[in-house]
C-alpha cells in the first residue's frame, strides 16, 4: 500500500471517469472540485471486491467536502451548504488552490 497522497484541507478534483462496472464514486461528484476533510480508512478496493477478488492492496478513502454550488450550478441555498462524500483515492487528483 502506498502512503496516503493527500492532507486535510487540500483541494482535489474527482476524476471524470465513466467506466462500466461497479464503483462507489457517485456520478454527481465526477469532475467536481472539493476539499479533503479527513482520511476515513484504508479499505479493500470495492471495484475489485465486487467481482470476487480481494481488492488488495487496500486503498485510502478520503472524506471530501463539496460546496453545493460546485455540485449544482443552479443550487439556491446559502454558500456554506455542502455535501461530504467518501471517495476512494484513485478517483482523486490534486488541483491548484483556487485563486
Amino acid at each position: 500500500m502506498s502512503p496516503p497522497r493527500f492532507r486535510p484541507g487540500q483541494p482535489v478534483r474527482v476524476k471524470a471517469w465513466f467506466p462500466p462496472g461497479h464503483c462507489r464514486t457517485p456520478f454527481y461528484t465526477r469532475g467536481k472540485r472539493g476539499r479533503i476533510l479527513d482520511l476515513v480508512d484504508v479499505e479493500p478496493d470495492p471495484e475489485e471486491r465486487a467481482y470476487g477478488r480481494p481488492g488488495l492492496p487496500a486503498v485510502p478513502v478520503w472524506r471530501v467536502v463539496f460546496d453545493q454550488h460546485e455540485l449544482w450550478p443552479d443550487y439556491r441555498g446559502p454558500a456554506q451548504d455542502r455535501v461530504v462524500v467518501g471517495i476512494f483515492e484513485p478517483w482523486l487528483e490534486p488541483v491548484e488552490e483556487a485563486g
Binding site: 462507489r24 464514486t25 457517485p26 476515513v40 480508512d41 479499505e43 478513502v61 441555498g77 446559502p78 456554506q80 451548504d81 455542502r82 455535501v83 461530504v84 462524500v85 467518501g86 471517495i87 476512494f88
Partner: peptide
Amino acid sequence: GPEVAVVVHDSTAEL
C-alpha cells in the same frame, strides 16, 4: 433558515 448551513453526508465507504 439561511443562517443554518446544511451539511449532507453521503455514505459511500465502509463508514
